[in-house]
Amino acid sequence: MKDSIVFDADLSPLRGTTLAVVGYGNQGSAQAKILRASGLDVIVGNVRDSYWEKAERDGFKVYDIPEAVERAQGALLLVPDEVMPQVFKEKVEPSIKGKDDFLLDFASGYNVAFGFVRPPSNADVVMVAPRMIGWGVTELHSKGMGYPVLVGVEQDASGAAWERALALAKGVGAIGLPGGVAVKSSFQEEALLDLMSEHTWVPVLFAAIKACFDVAVEEYGVSPAAALLEFYASGELAEIAQLMAQEGIFEQMKHHSTTSQYGTLTRFYKYYDQVRELVEGEAAQIWSGEFAREWSLEQQAGTPVFSRLWRLARESSMSKEEHELYRALKRR
């Protein structure tokens, strides 16, 4: 891949290749349908559950995962990260032994980057990672639009892994359409960036909103409904996020009052050093593999911490007030 940013590619590296989409959840169903619409040969591998039935209703030939992989020359592994190691070891890897230049595509760098999945040497190991969830991919494609993906190659057994990865990016509707772009990356880089978002600005934002709600309601007697609507429930936050994506994080501020701009900019510089220190610490834990080990041990223990934190979040006063407001607004 000569250029770090690519807007279109050739589908020919995948012509005549049967692709098995493993996992027919939100991302799997979206990518399978678009690959088929792109004229490629697609089958589905899944366990026998409601997703199997949905894939059949959508017109796909569906097989147990080992058989689907056996029938294919490439597989898009689109099962959740937490079950990927077991699925790969038990159902995918045995079916690709002896199949030279088999194409393995991952939509996330996590398991390969941190060593939970170790593909065999006979496979091209590529990553086409959409920067949005499955329904967003489907919605954009229905409008004739592309979307951003990170593309990486961990292992090039065939000598054409980059070409095949970019062909996949085109096949799933990311590039070759308005708004679509593939950015050269790596499994390690994608895993770091994805986890950095999840460990830093997302929880910081959630914590800030909850702190604002608690202070406004508990210390100043503000109506809970008014606080929720102001801080996020009105949808203004989503509109700001959309403008950030379209115009840039600072440029979108011109749509706000000068009072708003002044308050945001002065406090941005006030908070930056504290947040930078937090981000540096979290990034170091991610890059070293410490978080991956922590999450793996949590899963092995039956997710007691994860379950308790979910319960605490749902039992919080803000969550209860949100439920009442959303029920009144007929959102629930």
Rank of each mutant, 00 (worst) to 15 (best):
A241N: 11
T258Q: 14
K254Q: 02
M253Q: 04
T303E: 05
Q300I: 11
Q242T: 05
M244T: 00
S307D: 10
M244G: 00
M244K: 00
R276H: 10
E282P: 04
A301K: 03
A245M: 03
Q252W: 03
F250P: 05
G248H: 08
I249R: 07
E282D: 04
G302N: 02
E298L: 12
L278Q: 08
F268Y: 15
T264Q: 11
F291K: 10
G263V: 10
A238I: 03
Q242S: 05
A292I: 01
H256N: 08
M244L: 00
F291G: 07
R276A: 15
W295T: 09
Y271V: 04
A284C: 12
E282V: 13
L265S: 14
E251D: 11
G302D: 04
M253I: 09
G289P: 07
E294W: 08
Q261E: 13
A238Q: 02
V275S: 06
F306A: 04
M253D: 01
E282K: 09
L243G: 01
A292R: 02
E280T: 04
L278M: 13
A283E: 05
G263D: 07
E280N: 08
Y272N: 08
A241P: 00
P304Y: 00
S307W: 04
E280G: 13
R293F: 02
Q274R: 14
E294M: 14
E282I: 11
T259G: 12
I249H: 04
V279A: 06
